[in-house]
Each structure stands twice: as C-alpha cells, then as structure tokens.
Design a protein around this nucleic acid. Structure first.
Lengths: 141, 141
DNA sequence: GTTGATAATGAAAATCATTTTCAATAAGTA
DNA sequence: TACTTATTGAAAATGATTTTCATTATCAAC
C-alpha cells in the first residue's frame, strides 16, 4: 500500500470523507522534501485546484497532524511548517539553504538525555533534537 | 558587576537610553526562572508600572534578543517565550509543570552531532537540543 | 543646572496568521 | 437515486504583533 493510500485510509477510518481537495493537499505534502506552512501548501495545491480555499488547507493540515501523519517543525523562518512524519522517531537534519529535511537515526542519544535529566533531578518526559546545516547539493552551489 | 548592570550597560553601549520602563522589564526577565512571553512580561511589569504599554514590552524584548541577552524558547505552549541567555551554550531542560528552565552542560554532544551530519553529507551549522520533564519540586506534588 | 536634539513612550490603527460562522455543496451509505 | 451529514469557501471575527504618530523624557553639551 502506497503512503498516500495509507493516509487516506486513516482519514476514512476516522469517519472523514475523501474529497478532491484533501487528496490534492495530501499529494503536495507527501511530495515535498521540505516542511511547508499552510500558505505554501495553499499556493502549491491551487496550481491543480484553483478554487481551493485556504481554510480547507488549515483544516486538513490540522487533521493530519492529529492523526500523527504530519509533524510541526520549528525553524528560524517560522514555527508553522509541517512535514510528513516518519514512523519511529523524529530527529531532523534541515538544510539552511533549500529547507530539505532528513530524518536521522540517533546514536542512542536517548540514554544520554536520560542521564542529563537525572543529574539535574528531572524526570525526563520528552526531548527535541534538530540539526541544521548545508545539505550535499547546496554545498556545491 | 551585577547582571542587570551588564544588561543596561549593553543597551547604553548601543546608544539606547536607560528608562524606568526598560529597567522594570529587565528586572522581571532577570528574576524569572521560566521563559516568558510579551503578555506575561507586560502583566508582571505593570504591577510596578501600571502605565506601561505593551508595545514597549515588545520593543524592549526585541532589542534584548538582538543584543544576545534573551533567547527565544520554543515550547508546546507556544513559540513566543523568551529566557535570559546564559553565556556559553544553550541546551535547556524545561519543567512541563511549572515551566522552570535550567541550562545543562552537554556531554560532548557537539562531536556526535558533527558525526551525524557527516554521515548524511551535511555541513553542520547549528543544533538545537531541548529536554523536558518534571523538575524535582514538581515530582513531589 | 538649563537647553536642545532626538530616542522612547503609549494609544490607536494597521497588519498578518489563524479560527469561527454559515449557507451551499458534495460524499457515501441506504 | 435519495438522503443524511461532513465538507467546502467566503466573509467575519479573533488574537498576536507591528506601524504610525504626537507627546514625553533622556542625556549630552553648554
């Protein structure tokens, strides 16, 4: 089953209907290599669906986030960008030039975070790690 | 020299004037153990300066951030909170209950981040690590 | 101290992103 | 095919932040 089919199946599972607008928005989000904000999704989706309203974009993206399919990504350029969530964990490496986002595997960072928390008398609940730099392509430019 | 004096000296250095409003805002920010948003700073500062305008809070906090004295802290409860920046680096441990923020020393995380970037063909520029959990005090409640 | 140039202030208006409202439309089940 | 009801898009409402502008206050020069 393709990712798109999985996403649409999840929507259906929650009693939500499959509409042309939702399919188009999902297409854009699944295709993008970088995190997008609602306005960007709106502009990109309107190329194929000119009558789309931005409210629909906001609503659809909110649903997808609640379903655990999209993840909010905080960046210097704004905290309203969303990226398709990869199963497992979510440490990101983001290109400061083109915005491309890549998930990376941690070298058991979790254990070290646990230790840091202990040292400070904290009971760890969550962590957040994000690296940024120039991706391979952008280094050559 | 006290921290407040250092801050005010930095303002003066940039040709900015020392006003009662700025002193009051700085007092609030230096005293707080947790990151505050402009509205919180406004409310707290108005206790001693009831005529303070919220625009002044926005402007002052923006200056302090540009001067490298305040740091923006991204949290589940919003991305518009600011914390006094500690010299050196800025990894935070934040209590999910009371919001208290503590800087912690990294166990040479930087080297590991560098390695991760290399593995993914990225040229590392920045990193962002933040842990959250229950602080000692809040665990007992 | 007084003066004067100008930075800072606060209120109101403007802006921008997001959410809510609501009547019209479309999805999908019966 | 008909019907229930979720979805849509436009407009209005909201909330946070920024800009504008006339008034006030700081502080350097005298």
């Amino acid at each position: 089953m393709q990712t798109k089919e999985i996403w649409m199946a999840k929507l259906k599972e929650k009693g939500m209907r499959i509409t042309a607008q939702r399919e188009a928005i999902v297409d854009i989000l699944l295709t993008s290599e970088k995190a997008l904000d609602p306005l960007e999704v709106y502009d990109l989706t309107r190329r194929s669906h000119p009558s789309l309203g931005i409210v629909t974009v906001y609503r659809t993206m909110e649903c997808l986030e609640h379903l655990g399919l999209l993840q909010k990504v905080h960046q210097a350029c704004g905290c309203n960008k969303y990226l398709k969530l990869k199963a497992g964990h979510h440490h990101l490496l983001i290109c400061t030039n083109c915005g491309r986002a890549v998930y990376f595997e941690g070298l058991n960072f979790e254990d070290q975070f646990e230790k840091v928390a202990e040292n400070n008398n904290f009971q760890l609940q969550d962590h957040w790690l994000q690296l940024s730099g120039l991706c391979g392509r952008c280094q050559k430019i």
